[in-house]
């Protein structure tokens, strides 16, 4: 059994002119949490969707456990769907407001023909609710009767229903209050350990990503610009964009926060429909030099368990 569960190779997802994902090679290892960070519009959610083939790639392949997802037929895809799941940012938008939460949580069971029969299904739904910290007696309630944090628990229970191996968590805590975020983060970590899940944890929040992820991939304008162990990426970033991102995350300690060197990037992110030539970050990079406009950097090793797409570590060209 390979230790790689999901592998993207040369993956591109274009929407018309917009190159949301534009040449990504990435592996998710069995049992790990890979954090995927980046700012709005960098393509991180699209990449997460493409790994589950919820959007069609324009080019490249995705393999799941050795199987080519991009070439899978309808039947293979259905089998695959049971082994994967998604947790969304806003469970209010992803749950059907006219169905009870027990119906929503039980739906994947019906689709995949699991726990057949009413009693078995009801028991399984109750079990799932308990696992995520909801009172199973509340299965007959509707989404609007729950708080944001509880709705996210419903979304998680639904995601776990088919006993998936790989779960894409797409900004799972972004719309929750701080004290509720902590509850959901702890729950996700506990569930991973209990069920041996593999996570792709997509978030704009680097501090949250560091709390859960073994490795972290940083995206900018459709590309992974840095990849490495969580500790290395945040304490010794190898790409100037990661450096700026880490320095911009406010730290809740006044003396440190006031004295810390913050790298303030100039200008806006260029349009993904018309990315700069060469390195995409060069127009805002405080360290840009001669090769940057002409050579498109390749992700290259910069240390043990760390790689960056930056000419500072030796000029490369894609």
């Amino acid at each position: 059994m390979s230790d790689v569960l999901v592998r993207a190779s040369g993956l591109r997802v274009h929407f018309g002119d917009v190159r949301a994902v534009d040449g990504v090679d990435l592996e998710v290892r069995r049992g790990e949490t890979l954090g995927l960070v980046g700012e709005s519009g960098c393509g991180k959610s699209t990449l997460g969707n493409a790994l589950l083939r919820l959007v069609e790639p324009s080019d490249g392949t995705v393999e799941f456990d050795g199987l080519d997802v991009t070439a899978a037929g309808r039947r293979e895809l259905r089998a695959l769907r049971r082994r994967t799941a998604m947790i969304f940012q806003d469970p209010y938008a992803s749950l059907d407001p006219r169905r009870t939460v027990a119906e929503s949580i039980g739906e994947p069971l019906a689709i995949h023909g699991l726990h057949k029969g009413r009693t078995a299904r009801r028991a399984r739904v109750g079990e799932l609710m308990e696992v995520v910290g909801l009172n199973p007696d509340h299965g007959g309630r509707y989404p609007h009767e729950f708080s944001g944090g509880q709705r996210q628990r419903v979304g998680i229970a639904r995601a776990l229903a088919g006993e998936p191996e790989f779960v894409v968590c797409d900004e799972p805590i972004a719309s929750l209050d701080v004290s509720v975020q902590a509850q959901v983060v702890n729950l996700l970590v506990r569930l991973q350990r209990e069920f041996g899940l593999t996570y792709l944890f997509v978030s704009h929040d680097l501090a949250a990503v560091r709390q859960v992820a073994d490795r972290v991939a940083v995206m900018y304008l459709g590309r992974v610009v840095e990849l490495g162990a969580g500790v290395s990426v945040s304490s010794a970033p190898a790409h100037p964009y990661t450096e700026a991102l880490v320095s911009a995350v406010p730290v809740p300690e006044p003396t440190r926060e006031r004295t810390r060197q913050r790298i303030v990037l100039r200008g806006d992110v260029p349009s993904p429909a018309d990315p700069p030539s060469g390195c995409r970050f060069r127009t805002r990079c405080p360290k840009a030099f001669e090769p940057c406009p002409d050579h498109d950097p390749v992700l290259q090793p910069t240390g043990p368990e760390q790689a960056a797409a930056c000419h500072l570590h030796g000029v490369t060209d894609l």
Binding site: A182, A207, Q211, S235, V246, V249
Partner: peptide, 8 residues
Amino acid sequence: ALPVVDDP
């Protein structure tokens, strides 16, 4: 409740 970004 806050995760610390530079917890080593």
